[in-house]
Amino acid sequence: DLSGKLIIKAQLGEDIRRIPIHNEDITYDELVLMMQRVFRGKLLSNDEVTIKYKDEDGDLITIFDSSDLSFAIQCSRILKLTLFVNG
């Protein structure tokens, strides 16, 4: 049953990962930690990372904090994230 699940599709460069999320109350910090685990070796804990999501118009919107993240989650059951490393 995928109805209650949130799917995160995260892209870093050419690498795209699909991550099912069971807890929608994820904070921004938890998201960043999850991305560091998912992209281990490509995304380091001291990297400056910018996370953006695609909205319904196809625009890339920056996620700065947990309220941005929860808004993005409300918009779509499949959250398409693009990561930019400013390392």
Results as ranks from 00 to 15, higher is better:
I19R: 01
A10F: 04
N23D: 11
L44Y: 08
S3F: 06
A10M: 05
I61A: 14
A10Y: 02
K42E: 11
D55H: 15
L33Y: 08
K42D: 05
S3P: 05
K5V: 07
C75R: 15
N46C: 06
Q11T: 08
M35T: 07
G58C: 02
L79P: 07
G58A: 04
D68I: 07
I73D: 02
S76F: 03
N46T: 12
G87L: 13
L83W: 00
E56K: 15
Q11P: 00
S45W: 05
I19Q: 01
D29N: 07
I7Y: 10
S70L: 11
I26W: 02
L83C: 04
E30V: 03
F64H: 14
F71C: 10
C75P: 04
E14K: 13
P20F: 08
S70Y: 05
I78A: 11
C75Y: 06
I63N: 00
D57Y: 14
S70Q: 09
I8P: 00
S67Y: 09
Q74V: 03
G13N: 09
D65K: 07
S3C: 06
Q74I: 02
E56V: 10
K52N: 04
Q11G: 03
L33N: 09
R40D: 13
L12A: 00
I63W: 02
L31C: 03
L12V: 02
G4K: 10
M35G: 01
F64S: 14
S66E: 03
Y53H: 04
E30M: 05
G41A: 08
V85L: 10
S67P: 05
L12K: 01
F71T: 15
E14S: 09
F64Q: 09
I61W: 11
Q36I: 08
S45F: 06
I21Y: 11
K54E: 14
K54I: 08
L2Q: 09
D29P: 09
R40K: 12
F64E: 14
G13V: 01
L12R: 00
D1C: 05
K9F: 15
L83G: 01
T27W: 00
I51T: 00
D68E: 09
A72W: 11
G87F: 13
K9Y: 15
G4N: 13
H22C: 12
I63L: 11
D29L: 04
A72E: 00
D68Q: 12
I63G: 02
R17D: 01
